[in-house]
Design a protein around this nucleic acid. Structure first.
Lengths: 143, 143
DNA sequence: ATTATTTCCTACCTCTGCGCTAGGGATGTA
DNA sequence: TACATCCCTAGCGCAGAGGTAGGAAATAAT
């Protein structure tokens, strides 16, 4: 499993906010109900998005969340990289690579690099706007 | 993590056998030593390859394993699909999909299908022969 | 026939991380 | 000042990854 529920939920939050865009803030409660996700769990996910300054937040009555920029400013990759510890398809490519001693004459290293690039490029090519109800201009991000 | 050590090891076994191809059988011990993998663990992985009829095996003295067909007959995908329970990047796409009730108006389903396809196509485009020491004709499987 | 070698089979163990729950504290708006 | 909402920490159950252990069955060489 490359992408956890955390990442998928984060994406759904972004889309939900994009589709309900306005000057007002949108409450956690509303998002949770529409998306059928536990409030408490969703809370922890949204907090990541706020910390990463992808969302504006406002506390108190009438508070909630709001996209900071327009939906086409956010690629799928940029969102997933906030919630997923790693999007690397194999352990060799993770941050703490610590390089295996065999890396030098490893027959498969280039293969994994290539796979990583393919995944990255695809996720980078789709924006939140592309995922909204009507789809965006292109609508051809599916191969 | 999309691809576990089991899958990576299986691939290395296939490459090792491809590079030491001959009429004779190659022992588990030899592979394990060259690849620096525990014999016992490797055993369980190789058994999957035998069961799937990708390898021939022979017991007793002088026994071991051997590729059934030539290295260019095996794509990376065909090997990984033997050891990995699922190569789906998200839970929604797994065998026991049991389809979430939201699938109908899910904004992200096509995204995941597209990602799955990109991964599948890439892994299907590379063969064991491509991964051998000198690389094969193409040698351009890295994007 | 016996022995050494090698594959086949079953069971089990530990550790990590995902997915989620719980309870409360802080802060701002009406 | 009351209440809606965000912020923070802790913990729990489960599944799967990664690996270990011990022996049974088959085969070749002696």
């Amino acid at each position: 499993m490359l992408i956890s529920t955390k990442g998928r939920y984060a994406l759904r939050v972004m889309i939900d906010l994009a589709e309900h865009q306005s000057d007002e803030f949108i409450s956690l409660k509303g998002i949770a109900q529409r998306q059928e996700i536990s409030e408490k769990y969703l809370e922890s996910i949204i907090r990541m998005l706020v910390k990463a300054k992808v969302l504006d937040s406002l506390r108190g009555k009438g508070g909630g969340y709001r996209l900071k920029k327009s939906p086409d400013h956010y690629t799928v990759y940029s969102i997933l990289s906030l919630t997923e510890d790693s999007l690397a398809p194999v352990a060799c490519l993770e941050e703490n690579a610590s390089g295996c001693s065999r890396a030098g004459n490893c027959r498969t290293f280039k293969l994994w690099q290539g796979l990583d690039k393919v995944i990255h490029d695809y996720l980078e090519s789709v924006t939140i706007a592309d995922l909204m109800e009507q789809g965006a201009a292109g609508d051809d991000y599916v191969i």
